[in-house]
Amino acid sequence: MLIRTLLSLLLLSPVVGMAEVYRWVDAEGRTHFSDRPPAQAASQEVKVESPPARVDNAARDRQQKVNAFLKQRQQERDQQRAADAKAEKQAAKQAELCTRLRARVKHMESVSTFYNLNEQGERVFVSESENTRIRERFRKKVAEACKG
């Protein structure tokens, strides 16, 4: 509450210092001052210089604390933005990987049989039950990696 009041006063003080003041003398010879020129008499604009605001040490300390708090909050927001950008980049990378893995699952469905290479480099085809286990194991790994 005190900080809000202090900030309000700081924001309003330049407006008060820049207000125009008019001086005029009425028919009876009395001098008047106002923030609006009179309609019936000629007036003169008076330049009023307000003294510089006196800031005590407690107010200066409070302002420094407010500035430090605002700086810390900005740093936290910057760190959060950086973390969000990193997470977004990682999510995009994961989505791309899952797209490729799902395409491989589809391709595996179209392959009739799988094989291994023996020591001579020859193809040794696996049984139909082994084909099914290979497909099922790969599908399960993709499902775990891609959550679905």
Rank of each mutant, 00 (worst) to 15 (best):
A145W: 03
R23H: 05
V15I: 11
Q120D: 06
P52V: 15
E130H: 04
V126G: 06
R60L: 09
K89T: 15
L70R: 10
G148E: 07
P14F: 00
N57W: 10
A145C: 08
R81Y: 01
D84I: 15
R73F: 14
F138Y: 02
Q75I: 04
V66A: 11
R4C: 05
V25D: 06
P14I: 03
A42K: 14
V48W: 00
E128K: 12
M18W: 01
L117H: 09
T5D: 11
A68T: 08
D61R: 12
Q120Y: 14
R60N: 08
V46M: 08
A103E: 09
Q79V: 07
P52T: 14
K147T: 12
S110V: 12
N131S: 00
E130Q: 04
V105W: 06
N118R: 01
T31F: 01
P14Q: 03
M1L: 14
P14C: 02
E76Y: 07
P51I: 12
M18K: 04
W24C: 00
V48N: 08
R133I: 05
F33V: 05
Q64L: 11
H107Y: 13
E20Q: 02
R102I: 13
R30Q: 01
L12M: 10
P38M: 02
R54Q: 05
K141M: 12
K106N: 14
R100C: 09
T113A: 03
V55P: 03
S8D: 04
L7G: 10
E88N: 10
R60C: 06
M108S: 14
K140N: 07
F69Y: 13
V55K: 04
V21M: 00
V48P: 02
P38Y: 01
V142G: 05
L70E: 09
L2R: 07
L6W: 05
A68N: 14
A59R: 08
Q44D: 06
A103I: 13
E96G: 07
Q75T: 12
L6A: 11
R62F: 12
K47H: 09
A27R: 07
A83M: 15
L117V: 05
Q90G: 11
A87T: 14
V48M: 04
A87F: 09
A58F: 03
L2N: 06
G29R: 02
R73G: 06
L9Y: 03
G121N: 03
E96V: 10
V48C: 00
L10E: 09
R133D: 09
R102A: 09
L12I: 09
K140W: 00
K140H: 03
L11G: 05
